[in-house]
Structures are given as C-alpha cells and as structure tokens.
Nucleic acid binder design. Structure first.
Lengths: 242, 242
DNA sequence: AAGTGGTCTAGACCACGTA
DNA sequence: ACGTGGTCTAGACCACTTG
C-alpha cells in the first residue's frame, strides 16, 4: 500500500509507479480507458489532485493519454505515433511521409554476439532476423535489418509469411502484447556495401546514414534491434533539441 | 493585463507567456533569480498554484530552473547544459566528453544563398564564418563551419582573436546577450572532401556524418548555423526517443 | 443530465538552504 | 528563524463528450 511520513517517497510518485505497473503488467491494455481520477482517488484514499499529478507525468511520458470529457486511456501505437514519434526521416523540404516496405527475407538464427549484446540475450539464443527495403515514392532508400528475440515473438514471419505490416510496432502491440515505449538510437556514416549498393541502386562505397536503434518496453527491456542504412540524397534525419 | 472569462485563454497560460516575455526581453537575465511564487501571485492577483503551474511548464521547457529552498532562476548555459543538452556525440562506449576546439579561420563575408536562407537573412548580409576542428584526446574528429549574422555578434573574432572558447553558447549569452534555447538538426552521410580528409587524416571520400544545426533563441529567431562533419570511426551521434 | 478531464483557489504542512 | 520551493487537501466551477 501507499506509505506516508518522513523519509518516504511522495504520494504522487508512489501512485505513478503503481499506475505504471498496472500498465506494464497488461492489467490495463493499450487503448483502453482507465478509471477516472475521482475513482482512483477514492480507491487509493488520496485527493484528486494527487492522482492528477501522477497521471500528468505519465501523460508527459507518453504512457497515458487524456481526452477531455471522455477519460484517460493507455497510449497505443497508431500510424500517427509511428510517424511523429518514432520516425525521424524527412525529405529535404522537411515533409514527413512513411515509406512503404517490402521484406527481402526473414530468417530464424542463433543470435550473433552483437545482437545478443544489444538485446541482452545469451549468445546463440534464437532470434528472428528480417531484412527489408523501404521506398519513398517507389525509390528504394533504406535497407533495414531487424532482429527480434524468437521467444516472445513466437510465430512472427513463419510459414513464409512475408506480409508484414509497414508499422511493426502496431503489430508487436496487437499481436504479441509488447508495447515499445522508448528507443536508443546511434547514428553513424558508413560506406554502402555491394549488397546495399545493389538494392539502393547506388555506387559501392556511397556514404549511407546508419541508424542503429534498440527499442525498449516500459520496463526498459530491449525487444528489437533495428539497423537502418539510409541514402541521404533526398532525405535526412531530423532531430529537434528543445 | 490578465483576462478571465469565457473564451479567454487560461490564466496560467497568460502568466506563462508573460514570464516568457520577461525572460525574452532580458528583463530577467540568465542566471538571475526571479520573484518567488508567492510574490508573483500577489503581483498578478492569482493564487500561488496558478503561478506554480505556469512556472512548472517553463521549467520543463528549460526556460527556468527551480532550486528548492533557494528560488527560481532563469536558465543559463553552463558546461553541463552544453554537454548534456546540446551535444549528442559520444564515443562507442556511450561516454560523453566535450572535445576541445581549435579555430582554423574566422572571416567576415556576405552570406551565401544557403546561409541567408537558413538564418533568415537577405542574401549578401554580412556574416561571420568560423571554421574549427574539434579533437577527442588529441585526435581530430570533427570539422565545423559556424555562421553567425554579423549584426548582433559585433566584434566576435575581430582583431585576429581566434581564442574562442570551446562552448560558444556561453559566449553568446555572456558577451552578446543572446541565449540559445533550441535547435533543429539535420543529419546526413557525406563523403569527405580533400580539405576535410586532410584535416581529419582520412582518405578522401570516407563517409562522414554531417550535422547541420540551426540554433534558435526563445522567440525562435535563428542565430547560428553550424555544419559539423564528423568521423564516426570511434564516435557516434546518440539520440534517445522517449 | 451526468460524468470526465481542466482550471483555479485557499490554506496546510514538509524539506531544504541561508543567514 | 525565515523564506523558498514541494506536496497534499477539499472544494468550486468550467469545458467537453456521451447517453
């Protein structure tokens, strides 16, 4: 239960942790409504303002979403979030459009040392490795290698099912109950390999922007490693520092 | 003055705008203390909670900084902010250290079309163009070209004064009263030119990470264009998506 | 009309830093 | 001891959405 008094953490923080846990455990599913502030306050024996403060911070963390007059909901992954929150490539006019994707292959393998390290798995654990190319207005622009631990993602890409949706995080959430909450990205400049050059129709050695992303759940468990190599002839990676 | 009633914007928003204006106009200088929440509430004829909500959002925007027991201060640029807020290059272990810098040259020129566009100046307006190289543990790693409008930056780099400090935003703030508040960055992969290759001791054509940054003041006026080209052999650009 | 989140108030008490 | 920000309460009213 909640504790109060000297030396103990503040009430709203305890409530924040409690609400986070309920979301993390799947007690409240993405997209569903949570009890009203007043109900939660009664249940927890605190004032509405205290619950409100906890919820406010979770809204800032993109864990919950408020809708005036309707209620408070667990955030979920829709196309908008994929585009404006997790996708940072824009064309050189600053316009953001999701590229479409086509899968080149999808294989089950033991994790390489690098994959194991990034996903915090033992070397040799089974993983699913997807390679796909992403096109902007029919022009191949990015090559992506996506690595997922085989465990929670069970049958993904099985039975020759290369028909993966464009926005994978929606799939992870709906199909496997795994919600991506944050991601760490490392960007480097690399030279196009022969393989990449062929796919992207560029010269071997052309500089490509490499984005290595580790996607994490709410409790910071890494669940996806994605390495994208992107031609920056007509596009760039956009980041705003506030 | 503050307005209330139907259709008018919320009180705390008006207060937020008012406080922002006072900071923007230099009425309260970076690093200085602002009146206490209680004093502001009395002055403005609202409750402390309302002032508090306005200040809370400005703290989240990095405009103000609270220090418990001491007061609320206008944020300023120190080394910590330069490193953790505006500098995104880390080594491949994830460690962040500021590189040192040495200026190659510093010239006054009319703005190129590109510079004028990015800084929202008329083509041909006088600008200051600084080129410097940045070293990590004595290894040249980044080449930077920094463009500033000559107007507000008066005598910067004049009289052969190539002794610019490493963290320029502190200089802009203290010397010229210009506070950088946010920045837009565009990242691309490019091939090292002969000039860059020589400085960085690399082969011509080596892929470099180009970071094109436009730095803005609180009222979103662009005041610095900075193009960094960075070897990503031992370092990378780190971005976290929450 | 009823229920939700959004704003605002007035006042209490705590934790922290300074003098 | 005093003033600051930090937490918490109880209650009022508004704005919005749904039945």
């Amino acid at each position: 239960m909640l504790t109060t008094g000297k030396g103990s953490i503040s009430l709203y923080m305890q409530i924040k942790d409690l609400l986070t846990a309920r979301v993390g455990k799947g007690e409240w599913l993405p997209g569903s409504i949570i009890p009203s502030e007043i109900n939660l306050a009664q249940e927890l024996g605190v004032s509405q303002g205290t619950v409100r403060k906890a919820i406010t911070e979770l809204v800032e963390n993109n864990v919950l979403t408020r809708r005036q007059g309707r209620g408070t909901f667990v955030s979920n992954h829709d196309t908008h979030r994929a585009l404006f929150h997790f996708f940072h490539i824009t064309d050189n006019k600053g316009l953001k459009v999701l590229p479409d994707s086509s899968v080149l292959h999808c294989r089950r393998k033991p994790a390489s040392r690098m994959e194991a390290s990034k996903l915090r798995l033992a070397v040799g654990t089974n993983i699913i490795r997807i390679e796909r190319v992403r096109n902007f207005s029919a022009k191949p622009t990015m090559v992506e290698t996506i690595t997922l631990p085989a465990r929670p993602f069970g049958d993904l890409g099985r039975v020759g099912n290369y028909d993966l949706p464009n926005t994978l995080y929606e799939l992870y959430e709906k199909q496997y109950g795994i919600t991506i909450h944050s991601a760490d990205e490392q960007l480097r400049a690399v030279a196009a390999s022969r393989h990449e050059a062929k796919i992207l129709k560029l010269e071997v050695g052309t500089p490509l922007l490499e984005i290595e992303r580790v996607a994490l759940t709410l409790d910071k468990t890494p669940v996806e490693l994605r390495i994208s190599r992107c031609s920056t002839r007509n596009h760039h990676y956009q980041n705003t520092i506030f």
